[in-house]
Simulated scan of single mutants.
Amino acid sequence: MKLVPLGDRVVLKELKAEETTKSGIVLPGQAQEKPQQAEVIAVGPGKVEDGKEVKMEVAVGDQVIYSKYAGTNVKLEDEEYIIVKQDDILAVVK
């Protein structure tokens, strides 16, 4: 199966949370912060708003930072994804 987003939605795959701090302290699973950085897996076609076409500004393979509580979590074939609107993506990491 494959996720194909509609409109201005983007499918993201979260990057792994840090398991140790910079000083080398190992963090238990509950203490790890939810990562806000993810890789773009699929991009919708965009949308038309007020008669103007809104183009997608991200592409498959981009690493992005998204809003902390944004999106809908989806599990498909033992993989977890997040579907967010393009407006919930704050930056592209280059």
Rank of each mutant, 00 (worst) to 15 (best):
M1S: 09
M1E: 07
V4W: 01
V4D: 13
V4K: 05
P5M: 12
L12A: 10
E14L: 15
K16E: 15
E18T: 10
E19S: 08
T20E: 07
T20F: 08
T20M: 13
G24K: 09
L27H: 01
P28A: 06
Q30F: 02
Q30P: 00
Q30T: 05
E33G: 09
K34A: 15
K34R: 14
Q36V: 14
E39F: 00
V40F: 02
I41Y: 02
A42H: 02
V43D: 03
P45S: 11
P45Q: 07
P45A: 14
G46Q: 02
G46D: 08
K47L: 15
K47C: 14
E49F: 07
V54E: 10
K55C: 09
E57N: 12
A59I: 09
A59T: 12
V60T: 13
V60P: 00
G61C: 03
G61P: 00
V64D: 10
I65R: 11
I65A: 09
Y66K: 14
S67Q: 13
A70K: 05
A70I: 05
L76K: 04
D78M: 05
D78S: 06
E79W: 01
E80V: 13
E80N: 06
Y81D: 11
Y81G: 08
Y81P: 02
V84Y: 02
V84G: 06
V84A: 09
K85W: 00
Q86D: 10
D87H: 09
I89E: 08
I89P: 06
L90M: 14
L90R: 12
